[in-house]
Simulated scan of single mutants.
Amino acid sequence: MSARALRGAAWAAGVGGSLAAAWLGLVTGAVPVDVGVGRRTWPLGPQSLDIAAPRDTVFDVVAHPYLGRTPRAVREKLNVLERGGDLVLAEHFTPVAGGRLRAVTVETVRFTRPERIDFRLVRGPVPQVTESFVLEETGAGTRLVYEGEMGTDLWRAGQWWGRVVAARWEAAVAASLASVKAEAERRAAPRP
């Protein structure tokens, strides 16, 4: 093989490796793209869930892993970096690529007892996410309403990436809401 062909192969391998590393960084949230150019936003949710439990119980189920001691079973999904009275800074871990990789997001979580929990993305696979869980009392318990907004940069390319992320993001939220529902209803069930 000629020296020129070797240089070309080395260059192609370098470019390929760089692109693979950039893709890996983007997917896992380690290298967020936040350039502030071509920002597009769209809504997340709404997702609504009726829970047969009092609003205070539902609030406590959501808040406890953040404000109290994080249970061992939750530590693979959540790591609280800093706790305050009504605000925490937390890492959230989500399996991606069939569980071979783990996306890490860092978010602030603000608690307004008993009716609201707000999330704001600090670092992740997209530059902007704001979300809320609003807890409304109903005659039979509590309605938890999830809504948010996601934003990405770089016009259509960012919009495409955001749609990919949003689908997985909302699926992760739906799984979390189902878990909250199950635990709140378990806590609210009459004891024999």
Rank of each mutant, 00 (worst) to 15 (best):
72 R>V: 10
35 V>P: 03
173 V>I: 15
93 F>A: 09
1 M>V: 12
107 E>P: 05
129 V>G: 03
36 G>E: 07
146 Y>G: 06
131 E>Q: 14
177 L>E: 09
22 A>I: 13
60 D>I: 03
70 T>N: 03
106 V>G: 08
11 W>N: 07
108 T>S: 02
86 D>L: 05
89 L>W: 07
78 L>H: 08
31 V>R: 07
35 V>D: 05
17 G>S: 10
23 W>E: 08
40 R>H: 14
182 A>Y: 00
106 V>P: 03
36 G>L: 12
39 R>C: 11
101 L>C: 11
2 S>Y: 10
162 G>V: 04
184 A>R: 00
155 W>K: 08
183 E>D: 01
8 G>Y: 11
28 T>Y: 12
114 P>F: 09
105 T>M: 13
70 T>R: 03
164 V>P: 00
84 G>D: 13
92 H>N: 15
118 D>P: 00
103 A>W: 02
146 Y>C: 06
190 P>D: 07
120 R>S: 14
145 V>L: 03
142 T>I: 10
84 G>L: 13
53 A>H: 01
100 R>I: 12
136 E>M: 06
9 A>L: 15
78 L>M: 07
66 Y>I: 09
108 T>L: 05
35 V>A: 08
114 P>S: 04
109 V>D: 08
61 V>D: 05
157 A>Y: 07
168 R>P: 03
32 P>A: 08
160 W>M: 13
155 W>R: 11
11 W>H: 10
173 V>H: 07
8 G>E: 05
134 V>T: 12
43 P>R: 14
106 V>E: 14
